[in-house]
């Protein structure tokens, strides 16, 4: 845009931006720097004083099997959840986007998990798969003889948090894919029809390249969301157990910070998580440049 408000209004620009900057500085940037600072300290048993310990917190974290367990589990949990929820949302979006009767009804019935929180999703799936009361675990055992007991069995608990999180993310991804598919021109697909292209060819040659920016964007957003925001699922269901099988990084951080009051040790974990975000952000900017992103 060439013509702008005259220079005399520059002061107004600063005034308009100031509220955002004040919030960002006070509640985001400053505390993040504090995290970095605190990560070099250890708090005394009564929490009234902090002692400088250099890199000791990081050293202890990176040599701790419990932390590696937490990291690996988080990465596997995130990877699997993101894959399941994006792939299924994409398939469903492509199918509902076809000219069929009742497409609208199908769409609205597929979106509603989006309104549920991770904690709510966790509770519902926890009951569905509950070893004593759950209808799904009951039939799983009846049909396969496998006892899906997420209360005692680590693997089952881990699978449960994946299912509960994927279900919640499915609705979110579905909305974005639906919106993206609206921009794929029907003429292009009809032209391909005339050339006798099969549905699979049409998808991989036309639809998928056109929606690949949104897919990439969802990949990034999902990774961050599942990695950082699934705390609720674990807190309502397993509290990290059984035997630390669901002790994802955010849950461990919460325990160390607010239950054991080890602020330095917890802050060091925050900094390690920041490295994770930084890597994701670099990938994002490298491959997508500045695209609109959503939480």
């Amino acid at each position: 845009m060439n013509s702008k408000f005259a220079k005399k209004y520059h002061y107004l620009a600063y005034l308009l931006i100031a509220p955002s900057i004040i919030i960002v500085t006070t509640f985001l940037i400053y505390p993040s720097l504090q995290s970095l600072y605190l990560s070099f300290f250890r708090s005394t048993p009564f929490g009234n004083r902090i002692i400088y310990v250099g890199f000791q917190n990081f050293q202890r974290l990176l040599t701790s099997p419990a932390y590696w367990n937490s990291l690996t589990r988080s990465i596997v949990f995130t990877g699997v959840t993101v894959f399941i929820s994006i792939a299924s949302a994409l398939i469903l979006a492509v199918v509902t986007n076809k000219k069929i009767r009742g497409a609208k009804i199908y769409k609205s019935l597929l979106i509603w998990p989006f309104a549920f929180s991770f904690a709510f999703s966790g509770i519902i799936w926890g009951v569905l798969m509950h070893p004593n009361v759950g209808i799904m675990s009951y039939y799983i055992q009846l049909l396969t003889t496998y006892e899906f007991n997420w209360i005692n069995n680590g693997t089952a608990a881990f699978i449960l948090i994946i299912i509960a999180s994927s279900w919640r993310m499915l609705g979110y991804n579905f909305i974005f894919f639906i919106a993206a598919l609206q921009n794929v021109s029907p003429e292009l697909l009809e032209a391909a029809d005339i050339d006798g292209a099969s549905p699979v060819t049409k998808f991989w040659r036309i639809t998928f390249p056109l929606i690949s920016p949104i897919t990439f964007f969802l990949l990034i957003m999902n990774t961050l969301q599942v990695f950082f925001l699934t705390f609720g699922v674990v807190d309502v269901l397993t509290q990290g157990g059984p035997a630390r099988a669901t002790d994802i990084v955010t849950y461990k951080l919460f325990r160390d910070a607010f239950l054991s009051m080890r602020t330095g040790y917890a802050s060091a974990q925050s900094i390690i998580l920041f490295v994770f975000v930084a890597v994701i952000t670099i990938i994002q900017f490298k491959y997508a440049g500045e695209k609109v992103f959503y939480q």
Binding site: L38, S270, V277
Partner: peptide, 11 residues
């Protein structure tokens, strides 16, 4: 965008 809550929760 780079500073989700867990990164700064203690401070």
């Amino acid at each position: 965008h780079m500073l989700p809550l867990p990164i700064r929760i203690v401070p």
